[in-house]
């Protein structure tokens, strides 16, 4: 479902934005998002400034604009839903363009940061700002085994599909749940092996 989003990542390019320290990118992104969210709607110049700045970053980092556009469209449903709910409040109608612009700036910022910064760099920064070690270990393990487990889930569904020619409507959910349950069992067996490997390498 979401896996294809990971396949075209542009973290491998080597531009000045990609080489910039992760602290700078994460901090800058956070400041930009915070300002965009918190600045009241009475300063319309801010959005124009933010868009110009982001356009500059996109140009320098050589991330294809079409890729960014696709990502933005994928993330639009929630924004459109809230806008639709707002459609029934005539007095708030003037808010929409502002709301749309604001959320687009925030989304673009996160997309740019995540496509120019490797995840391990992010974890390093989080460790530096004293995030609890347990949370960082969990995040690192999740990121490491995410792809392994997604592959495993796809292999299992393929194997299941090749063994059942026709699945009756009635049995679809139990069969899928068995696949998911098996995936959990394999994940927990893998966790035991990982713990043994961690201990062998001097964990704790």
């Amino acid at each position: 479902m979401k896996l294809h989003l990971l396949e075209h990542r542009h973290a491998q390019l080597n531009t000045i934005i990609h080489r910039a320290p992760a602290e700078l990118k994460l901090g800058g992104g956070l400041v930009l998002i915070a300002l965009t969210v918190l600045i009241p709607a009475t300063i319309p110049g801010w959005l124009a400034f933010a868009f110009t700045f982001l356009a500059l970053v996109i140009a320098v980092s050589r991330i294809p604009p079409m890729f960014l556009l696709k990502r933005l469209l994928l993330l639009a449903p929630f924004v459109l839903g809230v806008v639709a709910l707002n459609a029934f409040r005539p007095e708030h109608r003037a808010q929409w363009p502002w709301l749309m612009g604001r959320s687009t700036v925030c989304l673009l910022t996160v997309i740019l940061v995540s496509n120019t910064t490797p995840f391990c760099e992010v974890l390093r920064v989080l460790r530096r700002i004293r995030m609890p070690a347990l949370l960082i270990t969990t995040m690192a393990l999740m990121h490491r085994y995410l792809f392994v487990l997604v592959d495993e889930a796809q292999r299992m569904s393929r194997a299941r599909a090749s063994r059942t020619f026709i699945v009756g409507r009635r049995w679809q959910w139990p069969v899928l749940a068995t696949v998911a349950g098996q995936l959990f069992i394999r994940a927990s067996e893998r966790a035991e092996r990982i713990y043994a490997a961690m201990c062998a390498r001097g964990f704790k």
Partner: peptide, 20 residues
Amino acid sequence: ARHIPMLGLSAAFLFAAQML
């Protein structure tokens, strides 16, 4: 301590299971 990796693997499992 032996269940610490299970936290990360459960998180990865939740993510992978959401693809089904």
